[in-house]
Write a protein that binds this DNA or RNA. Structure first.
Lengths: 178, 178
DNA sequence: GAAATTTGTTTAACATGTTAAGTTATTCGA
DNA sequence: TCGAATAACTTAACATGTTAAACAAATTTC
């Protein structure tokens, strides 16, 4: 029966069980990391089903998308563009290569470097997914408002730049503990 | 060393007017999901070292933080508040319980439900981490601007609400393809 | 009131995030 | 030129994200 519905949408009085909240900081659900996480999840929730129908994860899609913009690209550069850590990228590339969605070779000038490019099969896949993705993106833009969307992206970029200079704090805080 | 820089360095191309319809979509580095991802990562990068020094991951911290706001809470509610999926929460609770940072019992009214609360050891840990976390948050607020931060959070919340009604599209799109 | 269904939670399986360590290739310095 | 740094990945190990399935307790049906 579950008399109390717990929809993620309503924000009337959740945050607890009407019990006594003791500690401060209970705004936590409004913290910046949580806001960003929820917003991103709300967006990605729209795309995941379509990607999944094509056998792609979000990260795999990011990689293929990035590859369509270039002829070939080095692994490190690809990691930067697709915003993936090296180890993640390494695993995903192994998988994408096994599925013949990408092609790899080693640079002759520097045998350490790997060069990646999308295959024709990968391109076909992109072309199959792109229409739906763009339609979803257009719908999101429409619902939220193109102007507001641009404004939001500006603010996000500014936030990034604000924190870029902020060298990670708390480094030598409790090193002696362990 | 390759003389040419990243292929996505130029960002002053067309945006709203040209409306690329068959090109590899837009810059992709400017896509909303990527913007949100990078912004969130920029924020979390500030917190992770401190949390790590205390043996906590971001998600573990979210759970303990949420628990400080209530006396006890049911697992499902906790998942909603801490924005974690059931399986993730289940694993983390197992770990936190083994470390005596939380306490669990089953509700007597409904034996399916589990009730969770923070332990005194968990509270101590929170109190040890909180000062640094709050200092970092304050620094972020200062750098980005308190007013802009509030505005950003408003927009993020609005984005969430805009997409809440948008039932996931692309469900039965290419099921027969593969 | 037993079977079917639903609900709350956990397990399982696979993919990615994250940090550390390992490999191989390149560069640098005495 | 030889060996110690460095650089570009890749592997390893552990934690979480994500979906599906399992499970047990509660609710609904007939």
């Amino acid at each position: 029966m579950s008399g109390k519905k717990s929809p993620n949408g309503s924000r009337s009085d959740q945050e607890g069980t009407t019990e006594a909240r003791r500690a401060p900081m209970r705004e936590f659900s409004r913290s910046l990391p949580m806001s960003l996480l929820r917003a991103r999840e709300a967006v990605m929730r729209q795309f995941r089903p379509s990607l999944r129908n094509h056998g792609l994860t979000e990260q795999q899609w990011r990689i293929l998308r990035a590859l369509t913009a270039v002829d070939t690209i080095e692994v490190t550069e690809l990691a930067r563009v697709a915003f993936l850590l090296g180890p993640s990228l390494s695993r995903i590339l192994r998988d994408l290569e096994a599925r013949d969605l990408i092609e790899r070779r080693t640079a002759k000038a520097d045998l350490r470097r790997g060069e990646v490019s999308i295959s024709s099969k990968g391109l076909k896949l992109i072309e199959a997914v792109a229409p739906t993705s763009e339609a979803i993106y257009a719908e999101i833009t429409h619902r939220f408002g193109a102007r507001k969307l641009a404004e939001l992206q500006d603010m996000l970029g500014e936030l990034e730049r604000s924190l870029a200079a902020m060298e990670v704090a708390g480094e030598g805080e409790a090193e002696a503990d362990e």
